[in-house]
């Protein structure tokens, strides 16, 4: 579903991502981990089409992100770590806008909007202007907008930032349900407990290099660390740094 082949990205002389090869399968929840500045967000931006790779190719659902941008984007949704909403639109108006862009027509659009309002418990503030929302409220609306058109691929940068425990639990449950239904989820996070809870596979990037890839058990064997993902992560990234 997501394929990165020999992808590199340079910012001036600095290499942010180096020769990355990665395949994420349908229905898989993939957690992309790494220290600050390791290249996670750059990779996500190349998958979503915000940045062009300096070398290599990225495809989503078989569509080349550079050459078939609209087709690739119509199959996926992206939730950034800093949610973007139009201040002068209400949450409901924003969801309607997304429904229009993804060509959900008439009653179906109304139904899906209401479904998302209910799922993410937006009813209380869905008809207020977004400028009055807290970070968590914005994050919930953006998450709802991302799920609205049943994307085949969901790319999320820090999914739990700003969410209260109840919303976090709801989001985790939605991830599990969606992945069972065949949605591929690619998430970047520093909340390792979330990755441990829902991820089928984990990739660890450090200084632009993919230094580990596999299930959590495979990573435990590789790092020779028994225990939580946090310990495994620290062992791998310390090793990579040496």
């Amino acid at each position: 579903m997501i394929s990165l082949k020999n992808v590199s990205k340079y910012f001036g002389k600095k290499c942010a991502v180096r020769d990355l090869n990665l395949e994420v399968e349908p229905g898989e929840v993939f957690a992309f981990l790494g220290p600050n500045g390791a290249g996670k967000t750059t990779t996500i931006k190349m998958i979503t089409g915000l940045l062009r790779p300096t070398e290599g190719a990225v495809s989503v659902c078989g569509y080349d992100v550079a050459k078939q941008a609209v087709l690739s984007k119509s199959t996926m949704s992206y939730v950034p770590d800093q949610p973007y909403l139009y201040d002068k639109l209400t949450g409901r108006e924003f969801l309607k806008f997304i429904a229009d862009l993804y060509r959900l027509e008439g009653d179906l659009a109304e139904f899906k909007v209401q479904q998302m309002v209910d799922t993410f418990e937006l009813d209380e503030f869905a008809d207020q202007l977004a400028e009055s929302y807290s970070h968590g409220m914005k994050q919930r609306v953006v998450m709802a907008a991302a799920m609205l058109h049943d994307p085949r691929v969901l790319v999320i940068d820090e999914p739990m930032v700003g969410l209260d425990p109840r919303s976090s639990r709801a989001v985790m449950n939605i991830f599990r349900e969606r992945s069972k239904a065949g949605t591929t989820i690619f998430m970047s996070t520093h909340t390792l407990s979330v990755a441990e809870d829902v991820a089928d596979r984990v990739g660890i990037i450090d200084k632009g290099d993919l230094v580990a890839l596999g299930t959590i058990d495979q990573l435990r064997i590789r790092s020779r660390v028994e225990g939580r993902l946090e310990d495994v992560f620290l062992a791998i990234t310390e090793g990579a740094g040496v």
Binding site: G49, P80, Y84, L101
Partner: peptide
């Protein structure tokens, strides 16, 4: 503008 960052992730032609 952060709006363009958002719009570029949507299925819109450039």
């Amino acid at each position: 503008s952060s709006e363009v960052d958002f719009l570029l992730t949507l299925p819109l032609r450039e």
